[in-house]
Simulated assay, not measured.
Amino acid sequence: MAPQPNFYNPLSLQIPAVTQDSIGCTPIDKTGLNTRFMNPGELEAVVALARLAKPKVVVEFGVNEGRTAKALMLNIDTIERYVGIDVPQGYVTDKAVQRREVPQQPAHFALDDPRFRLLIARRGSHDLAADDLPKCDFVFIDGDHGRAGVVKDTLLATRIVRPGGIIAWHDYHHLGTVDVREVLEEYYDAGRPIQHVEGTWLAFMRV
């Protein structure tokens, strides 16, 4: 979802925060990449979270233009395989705010990297089972942000991430336009060790 003014209001968020410094945020190589749909510092924070998992295999739900995939592959030299999942033109997201975000050219930033594989499914993750995806070390969830999408992406992520790996979600915020916050706070209340990165719309959990 596109960044908005006054995007961060920590007083309205239940999940405890960690600082960007504590996860090792540093400047990254963003050569040729835009920061569309990301707030300042968030791409750096995704790279930092992924580095914590020392990933060989990464899976991304909602790869969009492939910008985040490209950034991770440019900045993390342990990555051997990257699977990006998206939907075809004509898919209608549950939340109106996302309906202009279905990509015209899915993953075009990442397609030139031989480590990358694009997986298009008519209904996104709703058409997938855990056996359709590789075991991995880091999952980034940034797909359909309706409740059903967040729940399904998270279920698949928990089944494919190896012990010690990390699941990260985008669009954990207070704006009320998507269901990420409500779903993640329910998971947190149920005992899942989710944290969010201060000053961003990112939340994460080590498995």
Rank of each mutant, 00 (worst) to 15 (best):
G143Q: 12
F138H: 01
T78M: 08
Q89T: 11
N9M: 10
P88H: 15
G66L: 03
I167D: 10
D144L: 09
R159F: 04
A168Q: 10
I28Y: 01
T19I: 05
D137G: 08
R159P: 03
K135R: 13
Q14G: 02
L52Y: 01
T31I: 09
L49T: 02
F61V: 14
V63C: 12
V92P: 01
T78R: 10
F37L: 15
V197Q: 10
L111G: 08
R162M: 07
Q4F: 04
V139M: 04
G149W: 04
I85R: 06
V59W: 06
T26V: 12
V150N: 02
A203R: 03
E182I: 13
L128A: 13
Q4R: 14
A157S: 15
D131N: 13
H145P: 12
V18G: 03
I85D: 07
F37A: 14
R117L: 09
F204R: 03
M205H: 07
E65G: 07
V178I: 05
D189W: 00
D179G: 06
T78I: 05
A53N: 09
S12W: 00
R162Y: 00
I120T: 08
A53G: 09
A69Q: 11
V150M: 08
E65R: 12
E65P: 00
V207F: 03
V139K: 08
Q98N: 03
D142P: 13
V57L: 07
I23M: 11
Y187H: 02
I79Y: 01
V97N: 01
R192H: 14
G164I: 04
V57A: 11
H108M: 10
Q14T: 07
T78S: 15
V197T: 14
E65M: 10
G84V: 08
P16R: 00
R123L: 11
A2R: 09
G165W: 00
L43P: 06
G124W: 01
I76E: 05
E182Q: 15
I141E: 08
L156M: 05
C136N: 05
R147I: 11
N34Q: 14
V87D: 14
